[in-house]
Amino acid sequence: MRLAFILYKFFPFGGLQRDFLRIARTCQARGHDIVVYTMQWDGDRPEGFEIHTWKPRTLSAHARNKKFHAHVFANLKHKPAAVIIGFNKMPGLDVYYAADTCYEDKARHLRSRWYRYGSRYRHFSSYERAVFDRNSHTESLLISAAQKPLFEKYYGTAPERLHLLPPGISRDRRRPENGQAIRTAFRQSFEIDDDELLLLMIGSGFKTKGLDRALLAIKALPETLRRKTRLFVIGQDNPRQFQLQAHKLGIARQITFFSGRDDVPRFLLGADMLIHPAYNENTGTVLLEALVAGLPVFCTEVCGYAHYISDAKAGELIKSPFNQQVMNSQLVKILESAEQRRTWQTNALMFADTADIYSMPEHAADLIETIGVRLSGAAA
């Protein structure tokens, strides 16, 4: 089959983008032709992919999205695909990969009521409705069970159109047999002493991931503990706001920023804990990547994959509603207990050996093929 994948932007370090690439490659390995439509492609181009890039010049994101959508579907009318798979919400999709949370729910609970009178809301709300409306034919691949009742609530989406996928953690994130040697070399390369504690934050969108909360928690550590604690932050975002915050808090020397990079497994092995106090997070793939590397996790319970940390007994959750003082106290307790962190590491590695947290691309490809067969039969 000829499969058309649509996403607004591709860059190598985004969670949505990495999921797209693994699903598309899985479909390609099964003999299907892959065509990609995107406004921007950064990074290497996979062999055998037919990639079309076109970015309209507009003043607003929603106007750009509309022009891009019209351009793509004009191309698809000229050269049809058996299945149209979108990684952003838009009309006309056969399959939608639900990397984002329910927009309507966020608009109603995280914004003022005046927000829903604006053109931005009208655009994104209409694009979400085009996917989930009870009269739509689009089938959605969900990666967070918590989102299913929200789409059913706001749009009356038929349950049989909402398919929950297992996580899809890449197996190269698992702790290798020489993990301790990699850790030692990593810490030596960054001049991290054995008695120092390295916290790690990974993810583009520093504001959403709660970096401000992490900086405040580090500032609140007792002085002796704070002096031996460092934070590495990895992500494709502008760090300036948070560099200024760290400077004002007097902890700038302990915070190191990195842009997105392809050697993240080395960081997972070299750190002492992943910290992820996100404001909202549909899933949080990095939580499971840390888990399979044996790295304890400290995250907010709003993350879609936070329950895996509890299931594995591999870290601690920050309860809702969020309270900065509670988080600060939790962090002190965690950093003061090396024994607890070792127990969490052992539990994490045991969980990684038994849990189904790797098969998302295969399940997604199965569903895409099934839908493609059904659509070709309907067309016939």
Rank of each mutant, 00 (worst) to 15 (best):
G315N: 04
T184N: 14
L331G: 02
D366M: 04
L317Q: 10
Q180D: 15
Q147I: 02
F190I: 15
F87Q: 09
P277D: 05
R341N: 05
S60N: 04
D311K: 15
P80Y: 04
F49S: 08
L3T: 15
Y154E: 00
M201D: 01
I309L: 05
T138H: 00
R187C: 07
A158I: 00
V286C: 03
H78Q: 13
A220P: 09
R341T: 15
E152R: 06
I6G: 14
G284C: 07
M350I: 07
P12W: 06
Y308Q: 01
Y155C: 07
H32N: 15
L331R: 02
K66Q: 07
R30Y: 03
I192S: 09
A348E: 00
L200C: 10
H163P: 02
A365P: 03
L162V: 09
A63E: 13
F132C: 07
A365F: 10
R134M: 01
A278N: 06
Q147E: 15
L367G: 01
F351S: 01
R175L: 08
L93D: 06
P167R: 09
Y127M: 10
F206E: 06
P166N: 07
L200Q: 13
I334F: 10
F11D: 11
A181I: 14
N178S: 00
P91K: 13
R175Y: 12
L221C: 04
R120W: 06
F132S: 07
D272C: 09
H52E: 07
T343E: 15
F298C: 15
N88A: 13
F206N: 05
L3Q: 10
A185M: 10
R161H: 11
M201L: 15
G118L: 11
V297N: 02
N238T: 05
K77Q: 14
K9I: 06
G260T: 06
G14I: 04
